[in-house]
Every structure is written in C-alpha cells, then in structure tokens.
C-alpha cells in the first residue's frame, strides 16, 4: 500500500515536471514529437532507477564517515560516470537499445530531475525499496508529462498565435494549462 501511495504521489500528485519544476529544459526541448518524448522518457526512467541503486550505498558510506554534506558532489559525480558507463555497455551489449536511447543518455547527466530524485530519496530517508519506487514513479511521471504535452504542442503548431507569443511563450502558457489540469489530482492522497 505504501509503495502504491509513493507511485501515485510521484506520477500524478507531485508530478516532477508540472508541480516540482525539475527537468523543465528537457520537457520544453524534447516534447515536440511523441517519438522523441518516448525515447527521452525511457532513458530518464532507466537512469533514475539505476542512479538510485548506485547512490543508495554511497550515502550509507558517507553517513558512516559523517560527511553527508558531500552528497551533492558525490552524487553528481557518480551519476555522470554512471551514465557514461551505461552508454558504453549498451553500445557493446544491446546495440538496438543503444540506438533508441543513445543520444539521450549523455544529455541527462545534467538533467536536474535525476539529481533531484536521488537527493529527495535521502531527504525523505527512504529505504532501498521505497527509493526505487520513488525513482520509478518520478520517471513515469516525467514520461507521462512529456507524452501528454507533445500532443498539446502539435495542436499549438496548427493554431494562429499573436506574433509576440509564438514559440516559447505559447509553449509555456500551454504548459501552465496542463499543469493546472494536474492540480486536479492534488486531492487524491492526503
């Protein structure tokens, strides 16, 4: 039950893009097409879960030496190295998957959603299973927001918008409306 609550909470109620404001750049940059949204979303889910598995033991180690204040430095370094490693392994072992996710992998090193999830896990003092659930839910929420928004954006392209609002401003205002609709989920869990 607890895990279902974390999942629903991260996917819908506290959606990482639309109410936590993490990964906005990726959200605005990639959501132009449904295909690239899916690719980016899959890569983010994958990296988030793996990064959580990696940073969990590291935090225990930092805690043991009493240097938890170094978590930002340690986590970002681990994520950066880890993403590079995944890229190399995928290239060698699973070329089709590398082809699908490859171009997105190096770009999500600095996606703040990934670092954000690992830090949230620590701040909320989740155990390993809860952390992985949280990472999975957050990743799914990110993908959901991207997919829904790519649909909205294809409609924006067809409509007549005042010159000044064309491009990024219109996209942001559309995102505002999508975010407003996600607020409807806020009563879902207490």
């Amino acid at each position: 039950m607890e895990y279902i609550l974390i999942l629903v909470g991260t996917v819908l109620v506290n959606n990482i893009v639309l109410s936590q404001f993490m990964g906005i750049c990726a959200f605005l940059g990639v959501s132009k097409q449904m295909k690239s949204s899916l690719g980016m979303g899959a890569a983010v889910i994958f990296v988030m879960v793996c990064a959580t598995l990696c940073t969990y033991p590291i935090y225990i180690l930092l805690d043991k030496f009493g240097i938890t204040y170094l978590k930002t430095v340690a986590f970002i370094l681990v994520i950066a190295l880890f993403v590079q490693m995944i890229e190399m392994i995928l290239k060698k072992v699973m070329p089709p998957m590398y082809k699908a996710l490859g171009i997105y992998l190096p770009l999500i090193t600095t996606n703040c959603a990934v670092l954000g999830v690992t830090i949230t896990n620590v701040d909320e003092s989740y155990n390993l299973a809860q952390s992985v659930t949280n990472a999975l839910g957050t990743g799914i929420g990110f993908t959901l927001a991207l997919l829904l928004f790519s649909g909205v954006r294809s409609r924006i392209d067809d409509s007549k918008i005042p010159e000044t609002f064309r491009g990024v401003p219109a996209t942001l205002i559309a995102a505002s409306i999508v975010s407003l609709s996600f607020m409807g989920f806020s009563g879902l869990i207490g």
Partner: peptide, 29 residues
Amino acid sequence: IMPCGGFFVLGCIIALVNKLANKKPPKEI
C-alpha cells in the same frame, strides 16, 4: 503562486521581452 502560475508568468514575461526587443522571437530553445 501555484505551479501553473509560474509557467504563465514566465511565458508572459518572455513575450514582453520579445515585444520590447522588437525582434523575431526565438523559435525554440
């Protein structure tokens, strides 16, 4: 002050900057 207001205000400010700068708005990021 809700999340949706953030997107809305930023969109309007960028539109205003585009208008004041009197240039073609950037198509994308």
